[in-house]
């Protein structure tokens, strides 16, 4: 039990600390984040340098896309169906207050296509595919498989990273379309079952002309950007793994946290910039 006692004896310092320690750790944290962003920039430039069509390993790209799509289909599907239903449940009281049930289809469609579809799909793909990618790469690093590639004179960036990078971006964009459709289905079903709005009414609201192609494009442009951030952060944290099995766990956590932060930050800027 010694280690448990040691653990609890450290508690007062860790919980309260002193102010200087707090400020120092804050500064250290900022420097650490800056260093991470810098390393991601370096990784990105190395990926870009190896991304000519001639150097892209198409077989690997397709293999990764297939795998990523299959592993994320169920979770994206379930998430989309439930989310679409929730959008209707939450929007129903507001719409009923205005007495504008006919707008429900439009309201749900607008929210799903522009915001909720891309955002939740990105978070789910980050949790499923991004985390898995980090875990894979991290395992390859700590078991020296990446060094093994280098020792065989095979460039790990070109062979391992580039196909995953583009496969992830493509998968996220495709999954967003899939998730948009399913979320609308979920919304229509919930409207029928819970709110008493017929499918037909939902459809009419959805196609009333208030939803334009640019709303769909808005969502898809964002999803490509999210794919970019998830791909970059999952590859970076995978390659930066140190410290054996616990290190892999830490990397996965760091990767999903960074992806989520990046997704929200990008979402904010793109919501303003993209029409």
């Amino acid at each position: 039990m010694g280690f448990l006692m040691a653990l609890s004896s450290r508690l007062p310092y860790r919980v309260w600390g002193d102010l200087r320690g707090f400020v120092a750790s804050l500064g250290g944290g900022v420097l650490l984040q800056a260093a991470t962003v810098g390393q991601m920039g370096v990784l990105l430039s190395r990926i870009a340098a190896r991304s000519t069509p001639a150097r892209l390993d198409r077989r690997e790209l397709v293999r990764h896309m297939e795998f990523m799509a299959i592993e994320s289909l169920p979770i994206v599907g379930v998430t989309a169906l439930f989310t679409g239903a929730i959008v209707i449940i939450q929007a129903a009281p507001v719409v009923q207050r205005f007495g504008a049930e006919g707008l429900l289809g439009w309201g749900a469609g607008f929210g799903v296509l522009r915001e909720i579809g891309p955002l939740l799909t990105a978070l789910m793909i980050s949790g499923r595919v991004g985390a898995n990618n980090t875990a894979d790469l991290g395992t390859m690093v700590v078991t020296e498989q990446v060094d093994g590639l280098r020792a065989l004179a095979i460039d790990p960036i070109a062979y391992l990273i580039v196909p995953r990078f583009f496969a992830l971006i493509a998968t996220l964009a495709l999954m967003t379309i899939f998730s948009d459709v399913l979320a609308l289905v979920g919304a229509a079903l919930a409207g029928e079952v819970l709110v008493g709005l017929t499918m037909h009414g939902f459809y009419n609201g959805f196609t009333s002309g208030l939803i334009e192609f640019k709303d769909v494009a808005h969502g898809l442009i964002k999803s490509v950007a999210f794919g970019f951030i998830v791909a970059l952060s999952s590859c970076h944290f995978g390659l930066a793994t140190t410290g054996g099995a616990p290190g892999v766990g830490r990397s996965v956590k760091a990767s999903v946290v960074a992806s989520a932060t990046g997704i929200f930050a990008l979402d904010y800027f793109l919501s303003f910039v993209v029409p």
């Binding site: 979770i75 439930f82 929730i86 875990a135 078991t143 099995a245 892999v248 996965v252």
Partner: peptide, 26 residues
């Protein structure tokens, strides 16, 4: 199963927790 196992467990945890939240929310 070593580092690969830790990676799989962490990934599964993110997915399962997120999914649980979506379903509970519904």
């Amino acid at each position: 199963g070593g580092s690969a196992g830790v990676g799989r467990a962490t990934t599964a945890a993110v997915v399962l927790s997120s999914l649980a939240i979506i379903v509970i929310n519904f």
